[in-house]
Amino acid sequence: MPIESGMPVFPGDPPVKIDRIHTYRENGWELRSLQFGSHTGTHVDAFSHMHQGAENLDQIPLEQFFGPAYLVEKGAALPRNSGLIFQEAVDETQLKAILDVQPKFVGGNISESLERALLKHRILTYTNLVHLEKLPKGKPFMFYGFPLKIKAGDGSPVRAIAIIE
């Protein structure tokens, strides 16, 4: 999702405010001030987001933020040891099935209660992913969703990409 002033945020999160501080015309360069919450737009949630004492972003190995993934279709078998991306809504009733296949990360249209449970089990969650309709069905793709390295960060906006062969 593009990050821009006034964009929708989760109720209670800080509003997004982006101000131009320097311009080419006045200063010879561009510079913007960015103000937003750590869970703005397309973002990844660290385990500490919903579990006190759990690992923060800067404590999670980079290898956990990317890997092979599948767009999961309703009623389809879940692939093992891959990232799972859900276009259709999924909630905590699917937790056991998801845990059984040991995903590296889960993203897409997941409920808050499922997100909390996945984070407890040290499975990263990605929220507000867009353009999921462009992902292949039944075929793996490489997913990358690196966070900013925020010291003690509970989450971070990401530039999530899928490499489709």
Rank of each mutant, 00 (worst) to 15 (best):
G41I: 06
I110W: 02
A160W: 06
R80P: 08
T40Q: 00
S5Y: 05
R32T: 02
D154Q: 13
V72Y: 00
N56H: 11
R32A: 04
V130W: 05
E165D: 12
L124A: 05
I123C: 11
T40S: 03
N27G: 09
Y144F: 14
M50A: 11
G155I: 02
R32K: 09
D19G: 00
P103A: 06
F47W: 02
H49E: 10
L57S: 02
E26G: 05
K120W: 14
A152I: 00
L84V: 05
S38H: 07
E73K: 03
T125M: 14
G28S: 11
H43A: 04
I60Y: 04
S38E: 10
V130Y: 14
K104E: 14
P14F: 07
S111D: 14
S48A: 14
R32D: 01
K134F: 14
F105A: 02
I110A: 15
H22E: 10
L135C: 06
M1A: 10
W29C: 13
F86W: 05
G108A: 11
R25T: 12
S113F: 13
N109M: 10
M1Y: 13
H39N: 13
E26L: 11
F141D: 03
N128R: 14
A162L: 04
W29N: 06
A89N: 13
I161D: 12
G83D: 04
T23A: 11
F141K: 02
E88Y: 08
L114E: 03
K96C: 07
E30I: 13
S38K: 13
D91L: 04
F65Q: 06
W29L: 13
S111P: 07
E115W: 04
R32C: 04
P8F: 01
G83A: 08
A69G: 12
E112T: 15
K151T: 10
G83C: 10
E63A: 06
Y126H: 10
S38W: 15
L95D: 03
V44K: 02
I150C: 04
G83I: 02
P136D: 10
I18Y: 00
R20T: 12
E133L: 03
L34Q: 01
L95N: 11
T93Q: 15
P15Y: 06
G12N: 08
G108D: 09
G67I: 03
G6Y: 10
Q87H: 13
S48R: 09
Y144H: 05
K137Q: 13
F36E: 00
A69L: 07
Q94H: 09
